[in-house]
Structures are given as structure tokens and as C-alpha cells.
């Protein structure tokens, strides 16, 4: 497999010269983005099926065997629907907002390693890049809320802005703990830093367990998922920031939300669950390609997202703010000091 790729790269280099690099990068982008889009489509089906089973009902089962064609049907429906732009909306920003929501959700994938060396860009400041990109996602929501010129959309956007800012701090501090432990901001090196010891025990979720929990919950809040989906709280503000969107505009917000979920799942696997490393580093387990372990861990984290949604009632807004500012931020700050001190002692085994 690796030799095949190398010969391919060599032939391409010989044939096209300087044009090869952009073309090869483009191919790699397609190879990353196309499966993400496919996963988004089938994640919606998985969500509806799992929610269905948890609520003792079958979930979608009419379109295709076991409802397997449901995502396609939904996609076609959204594509063919009329796009309605409210007459008093700011047209340019109204159309640009869904694009701005999806763009950072996809751009962040550039540095995510799927296996040893399997990444689009090996960036030294990868962790910073991820933080920067995920912090941009809020613009799509704010601009959508403002450009719609509707009070429900606007309230949703304000809620979302305040929520994302609050949880980003906790998320950032949790990641600082990871970079402290790994002594690197390169995502590949962070995974390699977890390869000491016997598989599972070397992963950072053990010394950084509180940070793992904080990171994942903050991730749920950042992606506006239940129980933190105050930005689209249908009980009080219709559909929040995307009240006025229909057809493809709505679909793009949907895609962005699910792409962000998958991203958070991938990042928590990379930073706390050893990325592509096998859980037990002996014969039958370490012969399975790393990509499968990575995808397995991502699937587990995604299942947690769905499980949360089926289990917890929606937070009240003041509870949400309290959790972010009064629980998570002090906790992460304390753990940062604990990890920094712990690393100076011989008791640090990672």
C-alpha cells in the first residue's frame, strides 16, 4: 500500500512537475472531505436509529432496507426545496452565513492525523490551528442570526455567541494540559507521546481524566448539541439562529453541526484516547491498521454525543453559564497547575 502510494507520487512528480503538488493536495482533500460528508449523512441516520432504540421505537425504516436510504432521501429533499430569503434580510450575509459555518468545520480537518503520517498537513502548531479554526465556527451562527432580521434568529445567535466564548476557554485550558503532557503542539507527536507503556495505560485520558471530561462536554456545548442546544431551543425560540433558513441553507448548517461533532470526536480520540494506537500493544491488536482504531474511537465518541441527547434534558441558560464559568474554568486551571507540578516529579509515568 505504502509502496504503491510512493510510486504514484513519483510518477505524478515526473509527469506534472510543479503542478503535481497542488493536484496531489487536492486529491488528498477530496479523500478526506468526501468520507466526512458521507459520515455526516449516515450519522443522521445513526442518530435517529439510536434515539429510536433508546426510546423503544424502530426509528426510520421506510426508505430502503433498515432505513439505509433515508439520508439520501433527506438530502435530495433539501436540495430541491425552494430557498426563501426574507425580504428584509441582509441578502449577502444571509447567503454567506451557512458557508462561513461549514468552512471552518472542514478546514480544521487539515491537521487531524488518521494514522501514523496519514494527515493532510503536518503542522507544528497543529493544536493552535485547531483552536483557531473551531473558534471561527461561531461567525456563521452570529451572522445568520443577525442577517435574518428576525428576533428568534437573533436571540439564538446571541445565546450561541455567549455560549461558545464561555466554553472555548475551558476547552483551550484542557488542550493546554494536553500540550503540557505531550510537550508538543503537533497532533501526530501528541499521539506518539501516548505510545509509551502498554497500549491503553499510556493514553492521556488517565493522567488528564478531568480534562478529558471537560473537553468532551465543552465540545458538546461548542457544537450546540443537546443538552446544550440553547441556540436552537425549539421550545422557546422556534429554531434559533436558523429559523429563517430553508433548503440548502439549512442543510449547510446541518452539515456544519455534524462535521463539527465528528471533528470533536476525532480530536478527543487523538488527544486523549491514543489516536491510531491499539488499546493493547500485542499481536492480534497491533496488526490491525491504525485507521481502524482511530475510526473505532471516533465512533465511540460519536455514540456518546447521541447518548447524551437521548438522556439529558436541555440545560437552562443560567445553568449552562454557571457550568462553563464556575465549574469548568476553575477545574481546568487547577488541573493545569496539578499537571505542571506532577510532571516535575518521578511519579509522572507518561
Amino acid at each position: 500500500m505504502m509502496e504503491l502510494l510512493q510510486t504514484l507520487e513519483q510518477t505524478g512528480q515526473n509527469l506534472l512537475g510543479p503542478l503535481w503538488l497542488p493536484l496531489w493536495t487536492l486529491i488528498k482533500i477530496v479523500v478526506i472531505v468526501a468520507p466526512i460528508m458521507g459520515s455526516v449523512a449516515y450519522l443522521t441516520l445513526a442518530e435517529r436509529k439510536i434515539l429510536g432504540f433508546m426510546q423503544v421505537r424502530p426509528g426510520p425504516n421506510r426508505v430502503g432496507y433498515w432505513g439505509l436510504l433515508q439520508p439520501l432521501a433527506d438530502g435530495i429533499k433539501l436540495l430541491l426545496k425552494e430557498i426563501i430569503i426574507p425580504s428584509s434580510a441582509n441578502k449577502f450575509l444571509f447567503v454567506a452565513a451557512p458557508v462561513l459555518a461549514l468552512m471552518p468545520a472542514l478546514a480544521a480537518w487539515a491537521v487531524v492525523p488518521f494514522g501514523d503520517g496519514m494527515e493532510l498537513a503536518n503542522v507544528n502548531a497543529g493544536l493552535l490551528y485547531i483552536l483557531a479554526m473551531t473558534s471561527l465556527g461561531v461567525y456563521g451562527i452570529i451572522i445568520a442570526g443577525w442577517a435574518s432580521n428576525s428576533k428568534y434568529a437573533f436571540l439564538g445567535a446571541l445565546r450561541s455567541a455567549a455560549q461558545i466564548i464561555s466554553y472555548e476557554l475551558a476547552m483551550g485550558f484542557a488542550l493546554v494540559c494536553v500540550l503540557l503532557a505531550a510537550q508538543s503542539m503537533n497532533l501526530g507527536d501528541i499521539v506518539r507521546g501516548q505510545s509509551h507503556g502498554y497500549g491503553l495505560l499510556g493514553w492521556y485520558f488517565i493522567p488528564l481524566f478531568p480534562m478529558f471530561v471537560v473537553y468532551f462536554i465543552a465540545g458538546v456545548a461548542e457544537t450546540n448539541r443537546a443538552p446544550f442546544d440553547l441556540a436552537e431551543d425549539e421550545a422557546t425560540i422556534v429554531a434559533g439562529f436558523h429559523t429563517e433558513y430553508s433548503g440548502m441553507g439549512f442543510a449547510l448548517f446541518f452539515l456544519a453541526e455534524y462535521a463539527n461533532m465528528i471533528l470533536i470526536a476525532a480530536l478527543s480520540s487523538v488527544m486523549f484516547l491514543g489516536g491510531w494506537l491499539p488499546p493493547i500493544n500485542i499481536a492480534p491488536f497491533n496488526m490491525i491498521p491504525g485507521l481502524f482504531w482511530m475510526l473505532g474511537k471516533m465512533s465511540f465518541m460519536l455514540f456518546l454525543f447521541l447518548w447524551f441527547r437521548a438522556t439529558f434534558p436541555r440545560y437552562r441558560y443560567d445553568q449552562l453559564m454557571r457550568l462553563g464559568w464556575k465549574v469548568f474554568i476553575p477545574l481546568t486551571l487547577v488541573w493545569l497547575v496539578v499537571v505542571a507540578a506532577w510532571m516535575q516529579t518521578p511519579l509522572w509515568l507518561w
Partner: peptide
């Protein structure tokens, strides 16, 4: 200066300007 560039995006674009917009929009 990748650190400065990322921090500019992270802090100014991702946080400061969001709060700015938050206020200006209202």
C-alpha cells in the same frame, strides 16, 4: 510567525470580535 498568526485568529477573531459583534448588533 505562525504562533502570532494563530493567536491573532484565536483571540481577536475568535473571541474579541465576537463580543464586539455581540454588542454592536444589539
Amino acid at each position: 510567525a505562525e504562533f502570532l498568526a494563530m493567536t491573532l485568529i484565536l483571540v481577536y477573531v475568535g473571541a474579541v470580535m465576537v463580543l464586539f459583534l455581540f454588542v454592536v448588533m444589539m
